[in-house]
Design a protein around this nucleic acid. Structure first.
Length: 220
DNA sequence: GCGTCCTTAGTCCTTACCTCA
DNA sequence: ATTGAGGTAAGGACTAAGGAC
């Protein structure tokens, strides 16, 4: 079952869907993972003065590449806090030998890209779920057709309360909500045992057997 | 109401890496 | 095997808009 985070910026996302993606592919989507860079030792760290020129219409700015250690420290503090107060920003910038603005921008980008990744993962999850539900729906409709076609003796319905078979009833389908219902013929129309059993989907196993007051189709 | 500071969303641009002729 | 061009992903930086104070 997917556990959606309480906020979109939360990073501790765990998605596990029985019968779906393997654990390795889930791990591959770990948005906390520091992206692996092939030649990390070749990273270019630009000196601050070089960059300052670029914003004033000077020569084209060189691209700053954070060192492995700078990235590690930034990631670490991001894990602790997704936003920084001015003091924290200042301290971190000092520690990393970067300008506070750079730290600020890094955090902005990190938040934005975490959220993007999160959204992509949720989208993927929902797509799979949709596919699964579609398939489940197909199966259930087939099942209904089969049951209709059978038209054999009254089905046995187990009472959810007494756990004993209910008296003879007829199998009907609500034309509005398409739920299969069994109507107790002996005890009259006061109660309807609605029995819905679905198979395991994703990680959600739904098995309901409820007794409800009889409703007309219009009330579904 | 105005100014300041902060955030998010969107975008630009550079760099690194990969593929292929 | 090497090399250069082109494509692409990653990520640093910027801007605009909006909210809080």
């Amino acid at each position: 079952m997917a556990v959606f985070p309480s906020s979109s910026s939360a990073l501790e996302l765990t998605i596990s869907m029985p019968g779906f993606a393997s654990s390795s592919s889930v791990r591959d989507l770990d948005i906390n993972q520091v992206p692996s860079i092939g030649a990390e030792e070749d990273w270019i760290t630009m000196n601050i003065d070089d960059e300052e020129e670029s914003s004033n219409g000077g020569p084209p700015r060189k691209k700053l590449r954070l060192t492995k250690e700078q990235s590690r420290l930034l990631e670490e503090s991001f894990r602790q806090n997704h936003t920084l107060n001015p003091k924290q920003k200042e301290a971190l910038a000092m520690q990393l030998k970067l300008r506070p603005r750079q730290v600020e921008v890094w955090f902005q980008n990190r938040r934005a890209r975490s959220k993007l990744k999160q959204t992509e993962m949720e989208c993927e999850y929902l797509k799979r779920w949709f596919g699964s539900l579609t398939e489940q729906n197909r199966r259930l409709q087939r099942e209904v057709e089969e049951l209709r076609a059978m038209k054999v003796g009254p089905p046995t319905v187990i009472s959810p309360h007494s756990c004993e078979p209910l008296p003879a009833s007829t199998l009907t389908m609500c034309p509005r909500c398409e739920r299969v219902t069994t109507t107790n013929l002996e005890k009259g129309p006061s109660k309807t045992a609605i029995t819905t059993t679905t198979t395991t989907t994703m990680s959600t196993k739904v098995t309901t057997s409820t007794l409800q007051s009889r409703q007309s189709p219009a009330a579904c």
